[in-house]
Design a protein around this nucleic acid. Structure first.
Lengths: 202, 202
DNA sequence: GTAATTTATGTCAGTCGATGACAGATCGCA
DNA sequence: TGCGATCTGTCATCGACTGACATAAATTAC
């Protein structure tokens, strides 16, 4: 990897970290892009070259997670029940988190705290989830050999999977460790599997 | 009702209708608040006194629907399985739509078309759904006599209910009638009930 | 019916997020 | 070293949104 891309990635993370800390200190709304840019000594214009919007910052880990999920989907046998596959994908995201740098984990936990403090941001994250859902539904339909426009079940499967994941992320405790989030998510997945009729997603 | 409130409601609907038509004509992003305000001959400032944001316009029917759902929840026997109750609430929204003025139905259908044309707006609507979900989860927890912070199942129930509703709203056909949307939704509800284990929500 | 009170509206100025255009700086490579 | 690609800052601009203040309308009290 060239020195250029290395530097770019470093700036990207610097912006992200500075922004998260500012958000946690003084709130999301009252932190301006100008401040964030100032903290890492770049021009506001450059900020928007790294993140398409201020909101985009909060969705950093979302993008990361989606990538891992899509990867997992591709690697799973196509005759596995779709919901099971999706739950594996969710677990893959968590495992990646467990194995990640302490810096990455730190970012994730801080973002979680940020979301708790600002319910408006949850909406934002969910909105991005709707986008992800569309892509996932298409993949699942392909696996099932159906047309996503006709096959309602593929949408339902994905919708329930994403819903399960979302419920799992909402931890009651404000300062939770990555391990705690993982444990909580496992509980939720188990609960979901107990709630659904065996073979419903075939 | 005083003349004041009457006039207010009329302006509110005038703004909404003008906006929707402009959106459909020239796209959501490229329609400015100034244009909308101009179309109904009010100042842009006044626009923001009727709708807190441009986005809020699109969520008009969402607010309407949420109100009906909450009402239905209150009127249902508290020993009914929660998911069943929620599905009744969804049906209540549809029934209200069927009985509504042609103007209201028209608005609803136009908004649906708008959402299809602008995927970004779907995210917005879903984001508002996250808000609704929180309120619903609290109600369901109260019915179940549990603490919403501890009881994961109440969140899962609501999340699945909302997910079901969302899947039902996505019709493949661009120009659908209210009846078609209702039929589609009924199918989806039936599918959901077939997918969930009996008694899962007790 | 008029006066007093409340509420709705318009105007103005200003903040903030976001984008396009251009110029200068930086990096990778021949 | 020098060329081309890419990155960055500056400037100008738009559009969403808000607060402050003055005016106009409707509601209420008398």
């Amino acid at each position: 990897m060239g020195l250029r891309e290395l530097k770019k990635e470093r700036t990207r993370l610097a912006i992200l970290d500075a922004a998260i800390d500012l958000f946690l200190e003084q709130g999301y709304e009252s932190t301006t892009v100008e401040q964030i840019a100032g903290a890492v000594e770049i021009s506001p214009r450059t900020f928007f070259r790294y993140f398409t919007s201020k909101d985009h910052l909060v969705l950093w880990f979302h993008d990361h997670g989606e990538e891992i999920m899509l990867e997992t989907l591709r690697s799973r046998p196509s005759d596995e029940p779709p919901f099971t596959t999706l739950m594996h994908a969710v677990r893959a995201v968590l495992n990646d988190m467990r194995d990640s740098t302490s810096a990455d984990a730190q970012r994730f936990l801080k973002l979680r705290r940020l979301l708790e403090d600002h319910p408006h941001l949850i909406g934002l994250s969910v909105a991005r989830g709707a986008d992800t859902e569309r892509r996932l539904a298409e993949l699942i339909a392909a696996r099932r050999g159906t047309d996503p426009d006709e096959d309602q079940l593929c949408h339902l499967i994905v919708a329930y999977a994403v819903a399960t994941m979302r419920v799992g992320f909402e931890c009651p405790r404000r300062d939770s460790t990555v391990e705690e989030v993982i444990a909580r998510m496992s509980e939720t997945i188990a609960l979901a599997e107990r709630s659904l009729r065996p073979g419903w997603d075939l």
